[in-house]
Amino acid sequence: MNEQPPQPQPVTSLLMRRCKIAWRLLLLFNFTLGAYLFASAQLRELKENRGRKAHRLHKSRTSAEVPHKDPITDSMEWNYDDLLVPATTPVAVRNPLLEEQQREVLQWMLQEKRKMKAKDKAEKKQIDEEKAILKRFLRAKSIPKF
């Protein structure tokens, strides 16, 4: 009548049974991480090989020599004054607009601002402020010179 209690199972197998899902997820994660690292290394090597090949092609193209009959400097005479003095065109000064023309331009600007559609509240606020400034200029007796 001496019954012996059942032998306890080893701890490692019991832990493996309890954590079966965790072990599977860990194994899957390790495989995917390895695949990612392998693929990124392959991609990096592929890009480097393409770069080397493009460099070799470019180098082979530039190494071809073109025969010259005469050197360029022998056949023409240089005018060094043209090279040293920069060629600049003077800025044309325009006559100032008359006050009536300025009012027409400001009126046109106000009409264009009214046509604009705002995307958000900040843009709407900015457009309203610009319209208020234009209206103030149009209502004034004299327009400031720009």
Score class of each variant (00 low, 15 high):
A35C: 03
R18L: 09
R17C: 02
A140K: 01
K47T: 02
N30K: 06
E45R: 07
H55I: 04
A92I: 07
E129L: 15
A22F: 03
A118C: 07
Q42I: 06
P6L: 05
W23T: 02
R103Y: 01
T88Q: 10
D82V: 14
Q111A: 13
K59Y: 12
L15Q: 07
L37W: 10
C19V: 01
G34I: 09
K47I: 04
V93C: 00
K59D: 15
R94D: 03
L27F: 10
L97C: 01
K124H: 12
K117L: 10
L138Y: 02
E48Y: 04
A22N: 06
K53A: 10
I21T: 11
N49E: 15
R139C: 11
R52Q: 14
P96Y: 06
F38L: 04
T73A: 10
L28Y: 15
V93I: 15
L27E: 11
K119R: 08
K115I: 00
Q4V: 03
L110N: 12
T88K: 09
V66G: 04
Q107C: 04
D128E: 15
K20M: 00
L25I: 02
P71H: 12
Q101T: 09
A54Y: 08
L14E: 08
E45C: 06
K53F: 14
R114S: 12
Q9E: 06
P71M: 12
P8G: 04
A54S: 09
D70P: 00
R61Q: 07
E99P: 08
Q9D: 08
W108D: 03
G34Y: 02
K69S: 15
A22E: 09
R56K: 14
A132E: 09
E3S: 04
K141E: 12
L98D: 13
V85T: 05
F38V: 09
L46M: 14
A54G: 04
N30I: 13
R114I: 01
L97G: 00
Y36L: 12
L15Y: 03
D81V: 11
L84T: 10
Q42Y: 03
P8R: 04
S40I: 15
L27G: 15
M76E: 02
K121A: 11
R17N: 06
V91R: 02
L14T: 11
L28H: 06
M1Q: 01
I21Q: 05
E3A: 05
S142R: 02
L138Q: 07
K115F: 09
L25Y: 12
P90Y: 04
L97I: 07
L57Y: 06
V85L: 03
F146R: 14
L27Y: 14
P10S: 02
Q111K: 14
P8F: 00
P67T: 15
R56N: 13
K113E: 08
Q111I: 12
Q102M: 13
M116G: 04
K53G: 06
K115Q: 05
T73Q: 07
N30F: 06
S60P: 00
L43V: 05
Q101P: 02
L15M: 07
F146K: 04
A22G: 07
K121H: 09
Q7H: 00
R52F: 06
R114Y: 01
Q42T: 12
I72F: 14
S75R: 05
P86A: 07
M116I: 13
A22P: 08
R136P: 00
